[in-house]
Design a protein around this nucleic acid. Structure first.
Lengths: 420, 420
DNA sequence: CTGTTAGCGCATTCAG
DNA sequence: CTGAATGCGCTAACAG
């Protein structure tokens, strides 16, 4: 028990060849049930775990998945990782963490990605907000390397991509403010280069338009998603003349909304009394700030889950959950059963929150999954409704996003051809 | 260029045997300089990266390092990971992410650790706050598996362990409040089981004692580090009679301090006007809250760096930085040069922030590194000093902790025998 | 200093 | 249905 048992040891103990042990371990169909049981029991009792590296080498296919994170500065990256990790833990895959350090130069950043491809360590990659590196990630994809993007600003055509419904989220935030009677609603935008900034802006302006209100350029300021930039934006807005000054502000990120909160205090303005405030993201802190922030929840963990499930379905060799580790757990929560019971593609289809773009190429070309966002009403807009707790930290975490689907502005159901 | 070149391809192109290529790649001394150059240039031009899995298999030693994170609920875990990732990126090692899911049962949590050992994927493990799992991690260690613990509550004897100087941190926080004239200073503790809770409490009470003040049990309440528990604690404190009520509160975590902040507002109390407030951790948000929080900064990224360097020095086969990736970067920041220039043990010794316990066993037994914490003065205590910006997000990140050392209450310099 | 020979631990042929 | 042989890509002894 001191040394790790090898497959040969198991073979010997079970009185079969290691080829057979291998077959059992890989769930091959052609194995005598008795033999299988015997081998399995020996495996269990010896605590044998096949070497991922060796089997990867021999089988020509790694069971490691790379996750590329863009520095750790964004608070919700941990949430996305959590979603990924949760799913991975029920498979026989492992996660390799790659990060693009902020201190790196551009060329070094490229190198990180080249390195991922060249080292051939991982079988596929999930890239979270790769940003400027997206085009390099796309290069991986064009080399036939399985890649899934999460919420990037540049969507290289053809690369599978997961993101939240920014448009509808922003739309409902603005609508909420309108419903509360606000007529002068400012918007603090995200950086122009980001797709999500544009989408949120568009959702906002669409809501205004539908309410018969014009978008006032004086009420549109831009930030870069950080708290500091939110402060600057708030100052600009509060400096406007009384007639121009907004009665409500919709910030494109919670962090920027925090900046507004801080500056409002400086100006002696109360939230929501003098100015209503809504954010976007619903990071953990938003429910803890005073006043608690009304915001649009992004399903970060679900985005992670979704990404890894899509990726695994592409690799599509993750036959069964690792088994060994989860045999005992009765798996009482629906989530688990759900994922275990169905092959991944079916589950995706079943949920109907998958959309397929690029109808020009009939097979799959660009698989694109958009997850629903949701309005979380708290105190900062002055709405009388009791604050929704549904987005409180850890509440519904792990649950599959509700089947309710978004505006069909980008959603179609031509999904049967997903997996190949 | 479509397929990844193998070592054989390189050998052929360079007109040498693959054994020689391997020697060059592994920085073996016995290679003809000319040959080495030739091989190196071919490697470069082909973009050849040896397969980590294959070399791990053949060499009997993996170049993957596991990082075990205890769910992603704590905000600073990302900071620790950042430190680890930064160091790793200058080596030829890669990171494998393991997480202990909150939803797991106890036995499953054990299994995660057993799995790490059994799968033999990684050469060593960094365990961040393994908490209840610490004893299992210790089991790994006793199996000869290289492990480094970060800031755990149970320190299994003999396991290398990195943590921040909680005692001195808490001591200086309390001292700061005392210096500001406070006589009734409450303390919101962390959970009793945690070592750091006790250390912080001790630092606090030591400061009071030295100032000739008694610790008033009525002013000690406990929480569990979360914001919610901070709220509860604050209510308890604010409910005290005017004579008993504290004029200052030292919370054992920033999150609990946020809870106090929120409740203070409910009670119509201003911070720092009616009650001064100090926290512990200096998470990113603490500088953004209003009033900005005076707190004790924990050097999370440095803890990560330190842990990985210690671990690598144990594995001690990480001869040179991966080279390929960092050749071009002039490496202008001192940090890089520092680490590249010196072997790890020397660097540790050179910094002199290493301590060795258990003097009974003369060789190395329990290596224990304690990093300095520092007081960050902001607005929440009402101190007139201008707020220290030194801990602002991203400022000095990446820098090696200052050589200044702590209270020598646990530090000795018997380090020459570190690496074996 | 360098080439040759064996495996690392496993999956996958291909014959039984 | 199962065993024996072959090799994944690389390193580690060996011999030269």
């Amino acid at each position: 028990m001191a040394r790790k048992p090898t497959i040969d040891d198991i073979a010997q103990l079970a009185g079969v060849s290691k080829a057979t042990v291998s077959r059992v371990l890989n769930h091959k169909p052609d194995v005598n049930p008795e033999t299988r049981e015997r081998v399995l029991s020996i495996v269990q009792e010896q605590g044998f775990v096949p070497s991922i590296t060796a089997s990867g080498l021999a089988g020509g296919q790694s069971r490691l998945i790379g996750v590329l994170v863009p520095s750790f500065t964004w608070p919700f990256i941990a949430d996305v990782l959590r979603g990924v990790a949760e799913v991975i833990s029920s498979t026989s895959y492992e996660l390799v963490l790659y990060s693009i350090n902020d201190t790196l130069r551009g060329s070094d950043k490229r190198d990180v990605i080249d390195h991922i491809l060249a080292s051939k360590l991982v079988a596929g990659l999930i890239a979270i907000f790769p940003g400027m590196q997206a085009r390099h990630v796309a290069r991986l994809h064009s080399h036939g390397f399985p890649v899934v993007l999460i919420d990037d600003q540049f969507i290289p055509p053809g690369v599978p991509w997961i993101h939240a419904d920014n448009f509808t989220g922003a739309y409902s935030a603005a609508q909420h403010l309108i419903a509360l009677g606000h007529r002068r609603i400012a918007h603090i935008q995200g950086p122009a280069g980001y797709l999500c900034s544009r989408e949120r802006y568009q959702g906002y302006s669409r809501a205004l338009q539908e309410a018969g209100m014009a978008v006032d350029p004086a009420l549109i300021v831009s930030g870069d998603f950080t708290e500091i930039s939110g402060q600057a934006a708030a100052r600009a807005l509060f400096a406007l003349s009384p007639e121009q000054r907004p009665t409500a502000i919709f910030a494109a990120s919670d962090q920027m909304a925090f900046g507004v909160l801080a500056v409002a205090e400086e100006y002696g303005l109360t939230v929501p009394g003098d100015v209503a405030l809504a954010g976007f993201d619903d990071i953990g802190l938003s429910s803890l700030v005073r006043p608690a922030l009304t915001t649009i929840r992004q399903p970060f963990p679900e985005m992670g889950q979704c990404a890894i499930e899509l990726l695994l379905s592409r690799l599509d060799s993750h036959r069964f959950p690792s088994g060994n580790r989860h045999l005992e757990a009765p798996s009482d929560d629906k989530h688990q059963e759900f994922r275990i019971a169905l092959p991944v593609e079916s589950s995706l289809n079943g949920e109907a929150w998958l959309s397929n773009e690029n109808h020009e190429s009939p097979a799959l070309s660009s698989t694109h999954i958009q997850l629903a966002t949701s309005l979380v009403v708290r105190a900062s807009c002055g709405a009388s409704r009791v604050a929704s707790k549904s987005a409180a930290r850890g509440t519904a975490w792990g649950a599959v996003p509700p089947a309710s689907r978004e505006e069909p502005h980008d959603v179609s159901f031509s999904t049967p051809g997903l997996s190949s």
